[in-house]
Design a protein around this nucleic acid. Structure first.
Length: 804
DNA sequence: AGCACGCCGACT
DNA sequence: GTCGGCGTGCTC
C-alpha cells in the first residue's frame, strides 16, 4: 500500500507536521511529492501538500486522499527542500513556507455547505426547508446563517437528515476563450471550397485562412483579422467544416505593447572587468556570491543583461529581482526589449490571475527569465544559471510577515543548490553585504565611473535652521527657490523629493502642543485631507478632526507636518507658472496611473515632479538637471539602528536622478541636521567613508554586521501580562546562551500598543549561537496554551530589518 | 484553525 | 433535572 505524507493547510503549532494518508489504488501513479491534494482532516476536507511517499506508516487508522489538485507537482524537489530550510531559518510553519513560494491563486479557499444526507428524501424535511433543497443541492453555510434557518438545520442535522460538507475550491480559473479549428485536412478544405455556393465569399475566405494556418485560432482574432461576423463562422460550423472549443489562454498584462528590440551595448573597460568573474562563475558552474558595487548611472543593468544572455546561451534560466517600487515599465521595457517573450514579469500590480499565468509560464518552461519583486525568488525554475538582486540594500526584500525571510538569503541558498552565481548590485550596499565583500566572503566587483564619463551631480546642503533664523518660514530655502526659477527659465526639469516616512501629517494644538493619538494604539493619527478625517495606520481607527483642543480648548488645533499636497499648494503660490506633477499614494493608486504620470513628465508636460519614496529610483530622464530634497532628516530620528544607513542610501539614490545624460546635474538637500554624518557624506557621495563611520558605530553598539540579532515580540491586552511574560522569556533565553551573547529586555516596542494590545520585546544579539533556534522553539512550546486560549501573541523575527 | 467532548452555573 | 457556557485536546 502506498502512503503519502501530507502537510495540511492549518497554520498552527500542533498541526505543523506531516500527516499520513492512504493513496487510493487508482491514484497510485498520479500522486507525487510536491502536489497539492484534498484530504479529510477531522470532520472537514482541506488542502495539503504531499511531501513524501512511503510504504509504511506508524499510524494504523489512515484515511485516504480525496483527490489531487494538480496534474503535476507545483513544488519541485528543490523547492520542497527549500521549504524545509525556510522553516528552519525563520521558525515558521511548513505550510506557510510552501504557500509563500506559490502564487496566491493556488492558495485554497473553503466552502462550508449543507446538503441532504444520503438516502433521505426532501419530503422528510420541514416545509420551510423543502423548497430550498428542491431548488439547490447544497446550501452555503453563510447563506443559512443569513437566512436565520441555522437552528432549523441543526435540528435536522442531529436527526441525520442533512449533513455538513466542506469543500476545497480553487481561487482562480484558468482563463478560457472560444477557439475555432478546422475539422478537415488541407486537401479536404480545398474540396470544401469548391462545394460552397458562389455567393459564400466570406466563408471561402475563412477556409483559405485555415488552409494556410491549420492550427486553432481564437474566435475574436479571426473575426477581426478577416473582418467577418460570427455568423460566417457559425455557418461553417453547421456544415461540419469547422469546430468550436474553449481553450486555455494566458492573461497577458503586456498585450498590445510592442517592445523595441535592443542589442547588447559594447561594454566599458570597467564593465568588462566586472563581468569577467561572473561569466567565469557561470562557466565553472560554481556557486559564487558577488557584490556589484557601482555608483548610480555606472551601467550595472547592462552587466546584468549580458550576464543573463550568457546564461541563456548555456540553456539555463535567470532570476532578476528588483524592489517593487522600481519595478517600473521602464525596467520591464529593457528586459522585454533584450529577451523578448522569454521574460515573465511578477509584481504586485498584476491581478491574482495574471500573476498565476506568469507563474505557469515559468513552470511550463515557456520563459527563461523572471523579472520580479521579492517573491519572484521562488520562481519554479529547475536549471537556474544566475540570480541577480538589484538595489540589494532595499528593505523591501525582507518580508515583514511570516515567513519573515530575506530574499537575499533565499537567493544564496538557491544558488548553492544550482551551483550558480548570485549577484548583489547596489550603489549603496547594505553594511552587511559590504562587510562580507571586504572580508572576501563575497567577490567585490566595482564600477566607479558613470557611463560616458558624466560627472556625479554637485550637491549643496542647506541648513534650514539658518533659513528659519533669517526669517524664511517656507518649506523652500532661498537657494532651492532660486534654482527652481532658474530651471523654469531654462526649460529643464526638476524632481522634488519629500521624505515622508516617519513624519506624516498629524494633528497638533499650536497652543499647548497636544497631539491627537489613536485611542487604541500609541501612535499619532494621520490626517487625510481627502476625507477630512484622522486615521490610524495600524488599526484603522477613524475620527473627524476636532475643532477645539481637548486639552486646552484652544481653537488653534490643526494638522502639522508636510504632505505632498501641502508642498504642491505652496509651489502654486510661489511659482504659479510651474507645471507640477504630484506622485504619491493618492495620485498613483489607480492601475496604470504611475506609468501615465511618468510618461507625461518624460514628454515634458510638466516642469516639476513632486513625490515621495516612489520617485527615488529608476527615473532616468535626460532633462532632469535639478533634484531637491525637501526634508532630508525625517527618518534619521526613527528609533532604528539602520536609520543613518537608510538616510544615506535614500539621499544618494535621489541624487542619482540628476544629470544622467548630457546636461550636468545639481542636487539641493534641505535639512535641520546638516552636521550629521549620513547627510554630510551623502552630500559628498562618499559611500566608503560613510561605511567606515557607520561600522564604528555598529561595532560600538553591538549591532549587525558585527552581531546577528533576533527579536521576540510579545503582545497581549494586559500590560502586566506582557511584561511578565517578556521578562520570563528574556530570562530563559539568556540562560540558554553563551555569555558572549547579549539579551536585552523586556523593553517596550517602539510602538508600545497596537489595537489595544501592549507590545514588549526581547532583543538578542549574538555572534554564534547554534542553539538559539532550539531555545526559541522551547519558549513557543511553553506558551502554546496561552497563545491558543488567552490571546497571547509571540512573534519571532530572526534578523529583523525594522525593530518594531 | 475548527470542532467535539466534557464539566459546571441559571433556567423551564 | 437540562441547556449552554467555554476550557481541553485532537485532527492521519
Amino acid at each position: 500500500m502506498m502512503i503519502a505524507s501530507v502537510i495540511v493547510d492549518v497554520p498552527a503549532k500542533q498541526t505543523d507536521r506531516a500527516f499520513d494518508y492512504r493513496i487510493p489504488e487508482q491514484l497510485k501513479h498520479v500522486i507525487q511529492p510536491g502536489m497539492r491534494v484534498v484530504v479529510p482532516f477531522g470532520p472537514r476536507k482541506i488542502q495539503g501538500f504531499v511531501v513524501g511517499i512511503k510504504e509504511k506508516s506508524d499510524f494504523d487508522k489512515l484515511k485516504s486522499i480525496v483527490e489531487p489538485m494538480d496534474l503535476s507537482p507545483v513544488l519541485n524537489h528543490e523547492l520542497l527542500q527549500l521549504g524545509d530550510w525556510l522553516t528552519e531559518q525563520t521558525l515558521c510553519y511548513k505550510i506557510s513556507a510552501f504557500q509563500v513560494m506559490l502564487p496566491a491563486a493556488l492558495k485554497a479557499k473553503y466552502d462550508k455547505k449543507i446538503r441532504l444526507a444520503n438516502g433521505y428524501d426532501v419530503e422528510i424535511l420541514p416545509l420551510e426547508l423543502q423548497d430550498l433543497f428542491c431548488r439547490n443541492e447544497t446550501i452555503l453555510w453563510a447563506d443559512a446563517v443569513e437566512k436565520g434557518i441555522l437552528p432549523l438545520l441543526q435540528r435536522e442535522a442531529s436527526r441525520g437528515t442533512v449533513e455538513v460538507v466542506y469543500e476545497v475550491k480553487e481561487r482562480v480559473k484558468k482563463k478560457k476563450l472560444k477557439h475555432v479549428f478546422s475539422k478537415l485536412t488541407g486537401n479536404e478544405l480545398s474540396q470544401a471550397i469548391q462545394q460552397l455556393p458562389a455567393n459564400a465569399a466570406k466563408q471561402k475566405e475563412v477556409i483559405e485562412y485555415f488552409i494556410e494556418r491549420p492550427e486553432p485560432v481564437e474566435l475574436r482574432e479571426i473575426l477581426s483579422a478577416l473582418e467577418i461576423s460570427s455568423a460566417t463562422i457559425k455557418g461553417l460550423v453547421q456544415k461540419g467544416i469547422l469546430g468550436e472549443k474553449d481553450m486555455e489562454v494566458y492573461r497577458d498584462p503586456f498585450a498590445h505593447r510592442e517592445f523595441q528590440r535592443t542589442e547588447p551595448f559594447p561594454l566599458t573597460n570597467e564593465q568588462e572587468k566586472a563581468i569577467g568573474p561572473i561569466l567565469d562563475s557561470i562557466e565553472e558552474k560554481k556557486q559564487h556570491v558577488f557584490l556589484l558595487y557601482g555608483v548610480t548611472g555606472s551601467g550595472k543593468t547592462e552587466v546584468y543583461l549580458q550576464s543573463i544572455q550568457r546564461v541563456l546561451q548555456e540553456g539555463k534560466e535567470a532570476i532578476f529581482l528588483i524592489p517593487e517600487i522600481s519595478l517600473t515599465p521602464q525596467m520591464v521595457k529593457r528586459f522585454k526589449g533584450r529577451f523578448g517573450d522569454q521574460v515573465a514579469v511578477l509584481h504586485s500590480g498584476l491581478s491574482t490571475g495574471e500573476k498565476y499565468d506568469e507563474w505557469r509560464k515559468i513552470q511550463r518552461k515557456e520563459v527563461k527569465v523572471v523579472v520580479g519583486a521579492r517573491s519572484a525568488i521562488y520562481a519554479p525554475f529547475e536549471n537556474i544559471g544566475i540570480i541577480i538582486i538589484d538595489e540589494e540594500h532595499e528593505t523591501s526584500y525582507k518580508q515583514e510577515e511570516n515567513p519573515r525571510y530575506h530574499a537575499r538569503d533565499v537567493a544564496i541558498e538557491r544558488g548553492r543548490y544550482h551551483k550558480c552565481p548570485v549577484i548583489l548590485g547596489s550603489a549603496t550596499p547594505s553594511l552587511e553585504t559590504f562587510a562580507r565583500a571586504q572580508k572576501s566572503v563575497y567577490g567585490l566587483l566595482t564600477l566607479s565611473k558613470r557611463m560616458n564619463d558624466q560627472q556625479l551631480p554637485t550637491v549643496q546642503i542647506i541648513d534650514m535652521r539658518e533659513e528659519l533664523r533669517e526669517g524664511n518660514r517656507s518649506m523652500f530655502s532661498r537657494f532651492l527657490l532660486d534654482k527652481l526659477k532658474d530651471r523654469l527659465e531654462k526649460k529643464q526639469q526638476t524632481v522634488l523629493f519629500l521624505n515622508k516616512r516617519g513624519h506624516s501629517s498629524f494633528i497638533m494644538c499650536r497652543d499647548c502642543g497636544y497631539v491627537v493619538n489613536c485611542p487604541h494604539c500609541d501612535i499619532s493619527l494621520t490626517y487625510h485631507r481627502f476625507s477630512q478625517q484622522m486615521k490610524c495606520h495600524y488599526c484603522g481607527y477613524e475620527d473627524s478632526v476636532p475643532t477645539t483642543c481637548p486639552e486646552c480648548n484652544s481653537e488653534h488645533i490643526r494638522y502639522f507636518g508636510t504632505g505632498t499636497q501641502k508642498v504642491e499648494e505652496e509651489l502654486g503660490k510661489i511659482l504659479p507658472e510651474a507645471r507640477v506633477i504630484r506622485m504619491d499614494v493618492d495620485t498613483t493608486s489607480r492601475k496604470g496611473a504611475h506609468e501615465k504620470l511618468l510618461n507625461e513628465f518624460e514628454q515634458g508636460k510638466a516642469d516639476i515632479l513632486l513625490g515621495t519614496q516612489m520617485i527615488a529610483k529608476g527615473l532616468d530622464f535626460p532633462n532632469i538637471t535639478l533634484v531637491g530634497v525637501l526634508s532630508a532628516d525625517t527618518m534619521l530620528h526613527l528609533p532604528d539602528f539602520r536609520s543613518s544607513e537608510k538616510t544615506f542610501q535614500l539621499l544618494t539614490q535621489v541624487s542619482g536622478r540628476a544629470g544622467r545624460h548630457e546636461l550636468p546635474g545639481e542636487v539641493v538637500i534641505q535639512t535641520y541636521t546638516p552636521e550629521h554624518y549620513s547627510i554630510e557624506l551623502a552630500g559628498e557621495q562618499d559611500y566608503d567613508r560613510f561605511y567606515d563611520r557607520e561600522m564604528m558605530i555598529r561595532k560600538l553598539h553591538q549591532y549587525p554586521p558585527f552581531y546577528y540579532i533576533s527579536l521576540i515580540t510579545v503582545s497581549h491586552e494586559n500590560l502586566m501580562k506582557v511584561v511578565s511574560v517578556t521578562e520570563k522569556i528574556t530570562h530563559f533565553i539568556s540562560s540558554k546562551l553563551s555569555k558572549d551573547s547579549i539579551v536585552l529586555g523586556p523593553v517596550a516596542s517602539s510602538i508600545p500598543r497596537i489595537n489595544n494590545r501592549y507590545r514588549y520585546q526581547c532583543l538578542i544579539k549574538y555572534k554564534r549561537e547554534p542553539r538559539l533556534g532550539e531555545a526559541i522553539k522551547t519558549v513557543l512550546d511553553q506558551y502554546q496554551q496561552e497563545i491558543n486560549t488567552n490571546g497571547l501573541q509571540i512573534s519571532v523575527d530572526v534578523n529583523p530589518y525594522i525593530l518594531m
